[in-house]
């Protein structure tokens, strides 16, 4: 059972990442690869605050959201000037920079050694130390994020975002300053990624920079493209497939010598087949 709970916790954490990234990529049409960076900043902020100051998880979580949103502001000020492929390239650069900082700011992040022994969350007398209670916490936060993304995308603000995706020039012509819209949704999305990072850090209780590489961003992008862009259900389905599929392949029974390699090959092949069969994703309303 613990294994199933473990998988659901991972699904919960990555659902938050998928939903928040979908706001930027799916709804606004900005191909951002910086998401793993914000996920990492959130994780590191919580880990450092909890380890060094003994701060309660929930206060550390709020502070980490603030820190992540501020870093998104700095990055977004530059990125929001771009669009399309230049935007994607710029976001690649920032993903590499955030990874480089985590790796090399050794006084703060302990660099490649990572931060071990991060505690599990506690609230008054409730401790989320068992996996089941942690799953409940994760689900509560995931539902909160789901509800927020739903609210955002159905508001007039959300409609402007979708208009930016469809035709930025036209919506500018109507008097909307698209720069601010692109910047603000980028910051909101980063704040949500910080929640996922905080959960990841306190769940695994160990973080190092290798969990927040550019590849992890690509993994998140793949999740929401597979599920279907600009649809919350799509983001969740994409996450479920991307997390469960490789786990499922552990049970196929390949011979030991090739099992690990076969798992990756088949995983990749299945993704390719799914994209061939349904390029707009499962629930997709929009594709690049």
């Amino acid at each position: 059972m613990d294994y199933i709970i473990h998988l659901f916790i991972l699904i919960g954490i990555f659902s938050i990442l998928g939903l928040s990234l979908n706001l930027v990529i799916g709804y606004t049409g900005l191909l951002s690869a910086t998401h793993a960076g914000f996920y990492g900043i959130g994780a590191y902020a919580v880990a450092i605050l909890m380890k060094n100051t003994g701060m309660n998880f929930f206060i550390a979580l709020l502070l980490s959201i603030v820190i992540t949103v501020l870093s998104a502001l700095v990055i977004g000020v530059v990125l929001s000037k771009f669009k399309d492929d230049i935007y994607a390239l710029g976001s690649f650069g920032f993903a590499i920079i955030t990874y480089g900082l985590m790796l090399n700011l050794q006084g703060v992040t302990r660099g490649p050694l990572g931060i071990p022994g991060i505690g599990r969350p506690e609230l008054f007398d409730i401790s989320f130390s068992t996996n089941l209670t942690f799953l409940i916490l994760t689900l509560v936060l995931a539902v909160l994020v789901w509800w927020m993304t739903r609210y955002i995308t159905r508001s007039s603000y959300g409609r402007v975002l979708q208009a930016i995706r469809e035709n930025e020039k036209t919506i500018q012509f109507f008097g909307y300053t698209t720069y601010w819209y692109k910047l603000s949704i980028f910051m909101i999305s980063a704040g949500m990624a910080a929640i996922a990072g905080a959960l990841f850090a306190t769940y695994i209780t160990f973080i190092d920079p290798s969990s927040f590489t550019l590849i992890e961003s690509i993994f998140m992008i793949a999740m929401i493209i597979l599920g279907g862009l600009a649809d919350n259900r799509g983001a969740i389905i994409g996450v479920i497939i991307m997390i469960l599929l490789p786990e499922f392949l552990r049970f196929v029974g390949f011979p030991t010598e090739v099992a690990a390699q076969m798992r990756q090959v088949i995983y990749g092949l299945m993704l390719v087949v799914m994209m061939l069969y349904r390029p707009q994703g499962i629930y997709g309303k929009f594709k690049f």
């Binding site: 613990d2 294994y3 473990h6 998988l7 695994i204 290798s210 786990e247 030991t256 099992a259 690990a260």
Partner: peptide, 20 residues
């Protein structure tokens, strides 16, 4: 045997699977 890929996320899933 399970692949840990030198990554925390993979290794924790692998350990959880082996144990439970």
């Amino acid at each position: 045997a399970e692949d840990g890929s030198c990554s925390g996320k993979e290794a924790s899933s692998a350990a959880q699977k082996l144990i439970s």
